[in-house]
Write a protein that binds this DNA or RNA. Sequence first.
DNA 1: GTTCCGCATGAATCGATAG
DNA 2: ACTATCGATTCATGCGGAA
Lengths: 290, 290
Amino acid sequence: MTIMLELDTILKGESLLTLKALHDSCIDLIFTSPPYADNRKKTYKGIPIKDYVNWFLPISCELKRVLKNDGTFILNIKERTENGERQTYVLELILEMKRQGWLWTEEFIWHKKNCYPGKWPNRFRDAWERCLQFNKQKKFNMYQDAVKVPIGDWSIKRLANLSETDRRRDESKVGSGFGKNISNWLGKKLVYPTNVLHLSTECANRGHSASFPISLPSWFIKLFTKEDDLVLDPFIGSGTTALACLELNRHYIGIEAMDNYHRLAQDSIDAWESKNNGKSRTLDLWALLK
Amino acid sequence: MTIMLELDTILKGESLLTLKALHDSCIDLIFTSPPYADNRKKTYKGIPIKDYVNWFLPISCELKRVLKNDGTFILNIKERTENGERQTYVLELILEMKRQGWLWTEEFIWHKKNCYPGKWPNRFRDAWERCLQFNKQKKFNMYQDAVKVPIGDWSIKRLANLSETDRRRDESKVGSGFGKNISNWLGKKLVYPTNVLHLSTECANRGHSASFPISLPSWFIKLFTKEDDLVLDPFIGSGTTALACLELNRHYIGIEAMDNYHRLAQDSIDAWESKNNGKSRTLDLWALLK
DNA sequence: GTTCCGCATGAATCGATAG
DNA sequence: ACTATCGATTCATGCGGAA
């Protein structure tokens, strides 16, 4: 059977089933924020906590299949508190995904600078989420220069006038193996970031609220893909990942099961394209054989 | 057998063995940063990754015994990368400690603003560590007002930048009990912090350096204990937790196996007490029956 | 007594080379 | 093939002494 899939579309359907239509090893980056576990049945897309790992594992299996060998999977997730405890399904999911063959390469912290206000007697506001990085192999594409950040203010004074030791390689006195030549830093404007991201959550701009700001997928898209690469979000929700791809000239495939979210995502994309119609990218036709 | 233990001392010995001498349910807060896993044999106190969970579990069992029912255990830890992957022993430890009866109440993030430099092809600098909160029961002591911060990002940063020595200097100048900076903030609105802490590591040229800044234990001591409460650090290293207790008028018990670290801790404490001899607290004698 | 400026240090990690 | 050692890379801070 041959399925023709257009790039840059939001497919409507359940993730697991829809993923099966995709070809092996065609995706450069998977970025997603799956529905969080929730025991309240009536909640949108809530998966009961006790079922979460078993619900996700078949999906991550498909994700591993469709990801290129040098591609990356970023999973934005945070475990709920229930009964006063942090639940452990995310930890268990990491362990199970490793058994599935994934490498757990890194855990980025998304620090939400303006997190939801509130006060509880036994805990503070939760201001961070995990962005778990998984890979299929130790070698993967990473374009570190694309996410460099301005060097700190300290450098202005520090590098203003260099001492004698600054001009040669100065070995650490305690034998930590750490030596440096400060003069190499002269004129440096940009440095590499760390694994902690400081991003504000965006408030809703049109009645809906994205679960993450567009800068979150943007950062990972810049870091792990180059232009015209293909990004997959199997739980695209209101379409933020697609918008990030549009802005960064990457192709995207989104999957969304809920009708209202699917429509919302499509509307956002249409709005973006009409606003940027001069820049709008051509819709490539692409054969995904299964 | 009756053992008389003085409060405010650093016991010399292995953690597991030394803990057995402590009475049940006598500790208000355990704060510790155990030796991190390390495969390099020659490194100080390195525990091989594969043995880490089994090494720690008997200790956490004793910690649970000596902790009061409404007390808190804060575990500062971060897993190593090995073979290009984040290792999973910390995740496994959380799961095992839950089986031991601990509640995993919260995970605080310590964001290290001045993390270790370096550049690698497949990862960025690691700028955060876990501070895992465990409790024996759902109701525990938490003094949230003690760690309120002035509203606004600017002041949060400023507070984080304020080192303990800064505070001491200010206090000694003004003598009012308030540093001058803090008094400036008195008119401003105080808000509760989040579960993300922004603190720099101290890496002074003092011959030694603690693996964490004193502001890290200080924050948790203020949050989870009141004056004259008892804090335990079963891997006290260079004594930072004890210094935090001295400054905050809490009692402490430290445990340290390595002779040089034990001496270092004692020296730091002696230095603090001679510098603050007016304020030095009396050494209470306290019977810990076993 | 205060500000300014020099500088040592760090729970790091990867790849190459050697045993 | 597998393990142990070693060199290379790199940013931001607090402390101490000078101005």
